[in-house]
């Protein structure tokens, strides 16, 4: 990383590091302030440049010749290989930028939540008590979560996976997270079963050829999941009609075989064709965003 004659890294125990960090932060915020002075007509260009440069990294990573057999201490030979090495070295750094930036933006989401719910409590709007409950639960989780986290990181030697070492913080966090949050997740996840049932009952009707085809396939697949139905067809076709010969022609008519046949010869190709379209669509949209060709809507 020592590309420029500048110290990019430091030891964790270095005392100068805070100076570096503060200077970096000041430069960063000064840059941000400078950007805010950009004239209106240049704004699109600024945003477009940032977008283009970030996209360019992955595009280059793809089309730039990849160095062969790169070992950690190798020195690159020639300009092409130097760029190749640099790109490879940057991957572990750049790949996390999206999640770091999204994490910084989380505050916006929290701001929105607080705005809606504090507003409701302050104005005593309909259901304001529930909003109060939400804020209370949020604060509780936040407090106990960080209490538990700091306690665990301060006492690295204690094995907190053993319940014998637990204190109030761990019990509290376990109750809130495992006892409540996870249970609620599971409850909401399982509620889908009910909705599948009512949706099928209401909408799976043989109104048109298409609906009938979809219904028929779904029914065959559902039957094949019932062991008893598969067992019956296996008994009928293999044991009775073919006299126990597992390789006989009629053996292809067991539910398990039919459902596999449908999956392999209809489900796979039809979904694949659909995915091709989606993949090309995503690429096209990616290109339009990367090159700032979209107008209107988000990119207005």
């Amino acid at each position: 990383m020592n590309l420029l004659a500048l110290q990019w890294s430091f030891r964790p125990e270095d005392s100068t590091k805070w100076t570096y960090l503060i200077v970096a932060a000041i430069i960063g915020f000064a840059f941000m302030f400078a950007l805010s002075r950009v004239p209106t007509r240049m704004r699109r260009v600024v945003v477009g440049t940032f977008t283009f440069l970030s996209g360019l990294f992955y595009v280059l990573l793809y089309i730039w010749p990849q160095p062969i057999d790169k070992k950690p201490l190798d020195i690159p030979q020639g300009p092409v290989e130097s760029v190749g090495f640099l790109l490879q070295d940057m991957v572990p750094v750049v790949k996390d930028f999206t999640s770091i930036l999204t994490a910084f933006l989380l505050g916006l989401g929290v701001y929105s939540l607080l705005r809606v719910h504090i507003g409701r409590v302050a104005r005593r709007q309909r259901d304001w008590q529930y909003s109060g409950l939400l804020l209370l639960c949020m604060a509780t989780m936040l407090t106990i979560g960080y209490w538990d986290f700091f306690m665990q990181s301060a006492n690295k030697a204690v094995d907190y996976s053993d319940r014998a070492n637990w204190t109030t913080a761990q019990y509290g966090f376990d109750l809130l997270f495992d006892g409540m949050l996870q249970q609620m997740d599971a409850a909401m996840f399982s509620i889908i079963a009910f909705f599948i049932l009512s949706a099928a009952y209401r909408a799976f009707r043989i109104r048109s050829i298409e609906a009938t085809i979809m219904l028929g396939t779904a029914l065959i697949l559902m039957l094949s999941l019932m062991g008893i139905a598969s067992y019956f067809t296996d008994w009928l076709f293999v044991q009775k009609l073919a006299g126990g010969n597992a390789n006989a022609f009629v053996g292809n008519f067991t539910l398990a075989e039919i459902s596999n046949w449908i999956k392999n010869n209809f489900q796979v190709p039809s979904l694949r064709a659909m995915e091709f379209g989606i993949g090309i669509g995503a690429l096209a949209m990616g290109l339009r965003i990367w090159l700032s060709l979209e107008r209107g809507g988000v990119s207005a």
Binding site: F50, A282, L283
Partner: peptide, 13 residues
Amino acid sequence: GIILGFWSGQQVQ
């Protein structure tokens, strides 16, 4: 734009 740029570049990749 940066987040979207990364995503777009990856589509090509």
